[in-house]
Amino acid sequence: MLLREVIDSLNLQVISEGNLEVEVRSGIVSDLLSYVMGNAKEGDLWLTIQTHMNVVAVASLCKVAAVIVTSNLEVNEEVIDKAQEEGITILKSSLPSYELSGSLYLSGIR
């Protein structure tokens, strides 16, 4: 499934746009940055409630397809600017991580 299709089907808001034509196969849910670094696979969707600057660094390091900030949390402008600079896609969802991962799983991202 292409990232663009995931965004459309789950009503995600794009707050920083990187490459939306990448193939998404799996995902990771964690708010511990070290855990993400140790376990994320390239092309994963990363669901988190962390919104600070280092999320961009970790996302770029792990080459995740996108970061999805859940529970409608605010991401400040400096973080968005940095993400754009690094070409990292940040998406936002009003759903909490648990519910969103359920929807993603049902849509075939496993």
């Binding site: 940055l33 070290s34 855990y35 140790g38 988190t48 962390q50 280092n54």
Partner: peptide, 10 residues
Amino acid sequence: MGFGAGMGLP
């Protein structure tokens, strides 16, 4: 902030 979980060195 999601750091200091004791996973850095490992």
